[in-house]
Nucleic acid binder design. Structure first.
Lengths: 173, 173
DNA sequence: GTAAAAAAGTTTTATTGCCAACCTTCCGCT
DNA sequence: AGCGGAAGGTTGGCAATAAAACTTTTTTAC
């Protein structure tokens, strides 16, 4: 059976021949590439579940903190609060999240998972466990805790930097 | 006409009281949060330079690999090739990048920096060095190499997974 | 040689994200 | 009270991204 042999891919520059220059060891670049790879790997795992991978953290945080407000939720998962509005609209419409008014403060909503939302969270958690097992293998059990602590430090220190803005060393063009 | 109020963001709900559940130690989540913080910190540093931070890797890769094709470039910086089209249009329009046809293959373009593009790259490199020095301080010199090697491993291993994955991504449009 | 398949780029469509402006509600003052 | 500012949430505008469909050109199969 004459299956067509795959021709050798001939891009102008093979990917392994690329010169990354300073990017090679630039933490910001590697962080972005690793995050992108991790996200897409999880998306493949979670493909069967009828929910976008970005919704996972939202569901988990609501499930763990019933009654949480939208602003607190947006802070917890590092997204702008306006980003949350369409997401929650969708989750409520699909019967996964319940949004109820707070009696003593009519500005805020109280968020909670419905029974269906909890089932969905369980399915996603199964994907996450599988994904995390992959990452465990890649990182190595011994380094995992240390690696996580560095990620947390980056997150915390750079976020607090937001307060003291850099003095602008303006360059002319 | 009411004067627009200066909004001062206050952490109304204590973010430290949030229960992150399994997210607390989930590598994918921490990667996303750290990457987001790093990206925004760099964006603040590069604010003065008249170029979006996302363009930096693109310029660096073109500068280091003159004659590279768009597809090879998209692979090298981990973005879809369709994403590159408007970016390059903009860079060409601003005189930073030159796009020329390859004589023996009229499908591909050859990308290269103009003199202005090289100057811009130098400015951005200065920001990157400053940013990286911050990250050095946070990570710690001793752990830096190890941390980078883990990020590279995540990137490589999870990307290679993509090849032998089920091709079942049917989406209606 | 010619037709089919593959590759490079572009366009279209949809999602996700931020920011700024806005509305409503609450709270602190006087 | 009632006024002004602060806080919770929504809306609109814009940028970045990816996936699929499409165009042009090249390569492969026969």
């Amino acid at each position: 059976m004459p299956r067509k042999p795959k021709p050798v891919k001939r891009t102008a520059q093979a990917a392994n021949a690329i010169d990354y220059g300073p990017l090679e060891d630039w933490v910001g670049f590697r962080l972005r590439m690793a995050q992108s790879a991790s996200f897409q790997a999880f998306a493949r795992l979670a493909h069967d579940v009828n929910l976008k991978p970005g919704r996972f953290a939202t569901l988990m945080l609501i499930g763990r903190n019933p009654g949480i407000s939208q602003t607190a939720l947006s802070l917890a998962n590092g997204r702008d609060k306006s980003t949350l509005t369409p997401v929650l609209n969708d989750l409520v419409k699909r019967g996964l999240v319940r949004r109820s008014r707070t009696p003593d403060d009519r500005r805020t909503y109280q968020l909670a998972l419905t029974a269906a939302g909890q089932r969905m969270l369980k399915q996603l958690a199964a994907c996450a466990i599988s994904h995390d097992r992959n990452l465990d293998r890649i990182i190595g059990r011994r380094d995992r805790a240390h690696f996580l602590s560095i990620l947390r430090r980056i997150e915390v220190e750079l976020s607090s930097d937001r307060a003291n803005e850099k003095p602008s060393g303006r360059r002319s063009r």
